[in-house]
Nucleic acid binder design. Structure first.
Lengths: 194, 194
DNA sequence: CCTACCGATCGGTAGG
DNA sequence: CCTACCGATCGGTAGG
């Protein structure tokens, strides 16, 4: 996938779309909604984008890249599995806080991708999960992590952070430091005293 | 809200709708899709339901009831906070496994509710979260739980189970006993060894 | 439960 | 970037 430069106007359209898709969903957002939001006529949108679907594709794969490139760096770290898991949690929490709208699209709207892009997307996700599981397995092998099934471990871990982007709105900023600190502690050491 | 009896045919329509909404989303599911799925003409659907929105409303509030009634019973239990939290996790995991489709609608499609129902829905959710937080606070007060902010505690806890309904499909049954057991352990005691 | 049908809205194009 | 416009599809109704 060659990365073509994205004009300022196109960025603006993509950002507006991410916000609309976040709150209304992809299918319920019309190109008229989007045009109004960016102050253009509907037809003018098509000078900057090819189709509604192209927007969704761009948004989904951009987020996919954020995760994949982040994980790549973590895998190459000279660190033990626990430190890598810490870094994975940082990665997810940072992305959630920095890109709450596009991450919601990434999480909830990918199902509207068209066949080709959908398959590609699922492939990216499978790769990502494979990388995560390798790190978890490494943690188990080194006796740093409890020996739980990888699927449950990964899903519960990733899922436990999947509320931050959702809670975070302009009216409801979240305390990044505290949230990050406590979610990590919860995952590593649990909530039960003793 | 008086509970009127629901005919067998209407049940069938609601179930089919839940599955369609789960995989395609509410907005992208047409009444034609639904009619085809239940083997009727589109117009015939309207002998059983008032509108597409009525279906969504019914689905969302039915799930809301499952959670609310479950929590009510837990609150009345003669048990300590840790046992109640255990019961809350059972409640969520059971609902996820027994009703994966309608729970997905409940989680992801409520935003398409119309204004009145939306406000009612959010009220139900706020009440539910208040109940959860009271139990968590109880746990903190009795020194059973670590003293973390209630918001983070609740969101992370509930969120950590929010993948089970999603993973569970007809082709991919999940081992209820193991999943339940391990997710609970992860939440209470963490994943780190030591 | 079906046939026949409707107004509204959708994503998108032609042409400038 | 806009005016003008289009075919397709939408949720839903009338009438039987």
């Amino acid at each position: 996938m060659p990365k073509t430069k994205i004009s300022r106007r196109k960025r603006e359209i993509l950002n507006a779309a991410a916000v609309l898709f976040r709150y209304k969903g992809y299918a319920a957002t019309s190109m008229r909604d989007l045009a109004e939001k960016v102050g253009l006529e509907v037809s003018s949108l098509y000078s900057h984008i090819k189709s509604k679907e192209e927007i969704l594709t761009t948004l989904c794969f951009h987020c996919g890249d954020l995760y994949s490139e982040g994980l790549e760096k973590i895998i190459e770290m000279d660190a033990d599995a626990l430190q890598k898991i810490d870094a994975i949690m940082d990665l997810h929490i940072n992305i959630a806080i920095d890109h709450p709208s596009s991450i919601t699209v990434f999480n909830d709207e990918w199902k509207h991708l068209s066949e080709n892009e959908l398959q590609q997307f699922l492939q990216v996700r499978r790769n990502y999960e494979k990388g995560i599981k390798q790190i978890l397995q490494e943690g188990i092998d080194c006796n740093l992590l409890k020996d739980y099934p990888l699927d449950i471990l990964m899903n519960t871990m990733l899922s436990s952070m999947r509320w931050i982007h959702y809670i975070k709105t302009d009216n409801n900023p979240i305390d990044t430091k505290i949230t990050r600190d406590i979610v990590k502690k919860m995952l590593l050491n649990g909530v039960a005293r003793k």
